[in-house]
Design a protein around this nucleic acid. Structure first.
Lengths: 185, 185
DNA sequence: TTAAACTTTCATAAATTACTGAAACTTCAA
DNA sequence: TTGAAGTTTCAGTAATTTATGAAAGTTTAA
């Protein structure tokens, strides 16, 4: 497998960005390669296209399976395993969001809840706890909201996003039209 | 400066999470320390509290200034520089979002735009470009939308988030009430 | 000016993370 | 069962990132 310059620049860029998106360079390259590949490809193809070791590919694919970003395929009469991107771009982005939410917010939320159960021992701790409470509430809000948004599905989310600055307007309607939502803290 | 066990656990946790949030351990610890400190503190206080070198603190604070997460203060008759968290938790979270958007999406958007200007050279590139276009549109959508949301300000965003699953309902209203929004691509 | 008090820089050391490749493992056809 | 075709694991090494601390830089009071 040989990449054209166009595809190579894309794949390499995803490698560079990988670490910012929560995985390492190789994993970024692999997922990029799979996304632009029409047909499913083997681990050997990947190793060759990216000039990395076979072992590295294996670990990368394992990681991507944990993220649910790749799909395994078998071809009849062929013992090799073939891989392809799992779902649409939208699906993949959703899974990345979800996974990052888990990794970036859940552990902190859990720690904050624990700490907030403790009695403050002095003045400094009293002040600190009010701050920790604020952080907790913000994280919890974002966390819950992002889960709601994902539940909306692509179509509605699309509408919501296209709404853009119109969101403000719609919110005003809501105040006038919805008598009183039942979810006050 | 000596941290109580409660504060220490919080500060250390932020250190661990730091790398997932886009900065390194030390920077995470420093920002956590500043957030729970009622009074502004000196770089030496920080080095002592976290048991890290003075130089490291200096670099960490520099980084945090780039993120606009710390504020410098001077006390009359005192030559030292004092530092405190810059703005409310909300403000700080906003800046982190903004900065991450810039780092995680902008470079990719820019690359994708470039690539999409090229003529595909073969079949594989034709397929790849449709995928790249999808990625581009999704990223652009998220990017623009998140900017809109930030423009709403805390109050409205709060309402929107509290709305939760109610968002779906409000969207239905919108379809019925807003004749036709002017922002079609 | 000088020098004391303080801060930043940066070369190098330490720590962490990622990659390789050979060995171990698995699966399947004969 | 054997061995060929394939995959995974993991110890060792390479690459990258982060931290240290001494030297250089800055600021201000006298």
């Amino acid at each position: 497998m040989q990449l054209t310059p166009m595809l190579e620049s894309f794949v390499m860029h995803f490698g560079e960005m990988g670490s910012r998106w929560g995985f390492n360079r190789t994993v970024g390259q692999i997922v990029a390669l799979l996304v632009v590949s029409k047909e499913a490809i083997t681990a050997n193809d990947i190793a060759e296209a990216l000039s990395i070791s076979r072992g590295n590919v294996s670990m990368g694919l394992k990681e991507l399976q944990a993220w649910q970003l790749v799909q395994l395929q078998h071809k009849p009469g062929d013992r090799k395993e073939y891989f392809k991107a799992n779902g649409s771009i939208w699906d993949m982005a959703n899974r990345v969001f979800e996974e990052r939410r888990k990794r970036e917010m859940d552990p902190t939320l859990s720690l904050l809840r624990d700490i907030l159960l403790d009695k403050p021992g002095n003045d400094a701790e009293v002040f600190a706890q009010t701050k920790l409470q604020e952080i907790h509430d913000l994280l919890e809000g974002i966390s819950k909201w992002s889960m709601e948004l994902q539940r909306l599905g692509p179509d509605k989310l699309g509408t919501l996003m296209k709404l853009g600055s119109g969101v403000g307007k719609v919110l005003e309607f809501k105040d006038k039209l919805l008598p009183r939502p039942a979810n006050n803290k």
